[in-house]
Amino acid sequence: MSQMTIRATIYRPKFRNGSLSLDLHKLTTNGLVEELQLSDNRNKTTTQFEQLPPSPMDSDPMTIAKLYAIMEAVADRVEMHKNIGEQRNNWNSLLLTSINSITLTASVMSGIAAMEAGGAPLGVSSALLYLAATGMLLVVNKMQPSQLTEEQRNATRLFKQLYEEIHTTLTIGNPTSDDVKEEMEKVLALDKAYPLPLLGVMLEKFPKTVEPAVWWAPLQDRHAKWRGGKVNKNGWDEKLEEEMREIAKVMNRKDEDDYLRLGNKALKLNKALAISSPILTALAAFGSAFVGHGSWAVILGVVAGALSTVVNTIEHGGQVGMVFEMYRGNAGFFRLMEESIESNLKEREAERRENGELFEMKVALQLGRSLSELRDLAASSPIKGEANHEFASKLF
C-alpha cells in the first residue's frame, strides 16, 4: 500500500497596518457592507463582510450629524452647570462667613461702646456695620445661593442623563428626525427649568404655592424608540397595564404628596428666616446708634445682632433653600414617572408604546425595587379598599 503525503501551508493574514487588532468602532459604524482587505506576501484578496443591522449609518447621515451636534451642546451645558454650581456654592460659604463676621464685630463694638464713657462714635460705627450686614442679607436672602447650587447640581445630573440617552439612541441605531426633534425639546425644557442667568429669569425662590419641578418636554406625543415584537402586544397585557396604573396612583398619593408637604414646610421655614435676619440686624443698627441713651439700646445693639447671626447660620449654613429645592425636585421626579406611565397607557396601539417588559424594568430600577417587589406593591395597593401606607420609592 502506497502512502500519500499531503502538505499544506497556511499563511496568517495581515491587516493593512500589519496588526491583527480590529477596530470594532469603525466596523460598527461604516455601513451595511464592510470591505476588509487581507493580504499575504504573495497575493492580495478582497473579501466583503455583511454587517448585521441596525447600524447608526442605516439612517440619514444628516440626522446622525444633528444628534451629534446636540450631544456636543449637552456636554457643554454639563460643564457650564457644574462650574457655575461650584461658584455659587462658594458664594454661599463666603457670604455666610462675611455676614456673620460683620454682625458679630458690630455686636462686640456695641457692647464696648455701652461700657465706656463717650462711646458714641463706636456705637455709630457699629450701626454702620449692621446696616451693611442688613443690605447684604437682603440680597443673599433674595438669591438663596444654596438653592441656586442645588439647581445647578440637578441640571448637571439631568444633562448627563440626556447625554447618555442620545448616546444610546445612536448606539442602537436607526435614529429618525423625530428623535432629533425630541432631544432638542428636552434640551430647551432643561434650559428653561434650570436657567443659568440670575437677572430676569431666576426661578422664584419664595413661590406662593409649592409645585413639583418640571424639566421635561410634553410626553403626550412621544413615540416608542425601542419597539418589541408583535408577540404579546409589544410586551403589554392587561395585567401590566393595571400594575402601572396602581404604581402611578401610589406615587401620586404617597411619594409626590409627601415631598410637596415637606417642601411646603421648608419653604415656610425659609421665608421666616429670610425675613427675620435683616429685621434683627436693622433693629441692632437702631439700638447701636442710640447707645448711651438707655439699657434698651444696649439690648438691641448686642442681643439682636447675636440673634441675627444665629438665624443667618441656620438659614444659609443649614442650606434650607437647598432642602426646599431638593424636595421640589423629588416631587418632580415622581410627577415625571406618572406622566411617563400615563403617556404609554393613553396610546391605544401597543406597538407605538415603549416595550412593556423594558418599561417595567426601568420603572422598577427608578424606584429602587426588584420586579417582584414592584408587582407586590401594585397588588397590595387596592386590597379591600384600604389605604396603602407603603411608599413607591425605596431610594429616597
Rank of each mutant, 00 (worst) to 15 (best):
K142C: 03
K142W: 11
L148C: 02
M143N: 14
R153Y: 15
Y163D: 05
L148H: 06
L138E: 08
K142Q: 09
I166M: 10
Q161W: 01
T156D: 00
A155K: 01
L138Y: 08
N154I: 04
K142E: 04
A155S: 10
Y163A: 01
I166Y: 04
G135D: 13
Q147D: 07
Q147E: 10
R153L: 06
E164G: 08
V140F: 05
L170W: 08
R157C: 02
T156S: 01
L162R: 10
N141K: 03
E151H: 14
I166F: 07
V139K: 09
L148D: 08
V140K: 12
A155R: 00
T149D: 09
L158G: 00
V140T: 14
L170V: 11
L138I: 04
I172N: 03
T149S: 12
E164M: 07
M143K: 12
K160C: 02
Q152M: 15
Q161M: 00
L162C: 08
E151V: 00
G135P: 11
E151G: 02
G135V: 07
M136S: 14
M143W: 13
E151W: 14
L148G: 05
Y163L: 08
S146F: 08
N141L: 06
L138S: 07
A155E: 05
A155D: 02
K160R: 06
E150R: 11
I172D: 05
L158H: 03
Q147A: 15
L137G: 10
Q152A: 09
N154F: 07
M143D: 14
T169P: 03
Q152F: 15
I172A: 02
K160P: 00
E150V: 13
E150L: 13
E151N: 13
R157P: 05
P145D: 13
P145L: 09
R153V: 10
Q147G: 14
E150W: 10
T149E: 12
T171G: 01
V139R: 10
T168A: 14
S146D: 15
K160I: 00
L138T: 06
N154E: 11
Q144T: 01
K142V: 05
T168Y: 13
K142Y: 12
K160D: 00
R157W: 03
E165A: 14
R157A: 07
I166P: 08
T171K: 05
T169V: 13
E165M: 11
Q161S: 04
R153Q: 10
T169A: 12
Y163N: 09
V140N: 11
N154S: 10
R153W: 11
E165S: 15
R153M: 11
L137Q: 15
L148E: 09
H167G: 15
I172R: 13
L148I: 08
S146Y: 08
R153S: 07
N154C: 06
T168L: 07
R153N: 10
T149K: 02
P145F: 07
P145N: 09
T149A: 15
L158P: 01
T156F: 00
Q144A: 00
I166V: 15
E151A: 01
V139F: 13
Y163C: 05
I172K: 05
T171S: 08
L162K: 06
E164R: 11
H167I: 04
Y163E: 11
L137C: 14
F159P: 01
L158I: 02
Q144P: 01
P145A: 12
Y163P: 02
L162M: 09
V140I: 14
T149L: 04
T169I: 05
E164H: 13
T156V: 00
T156M: 01
L170C: 07
M136Q: 11
L162T: 06
Q147M: 12
H167E: 13
N154T: 06
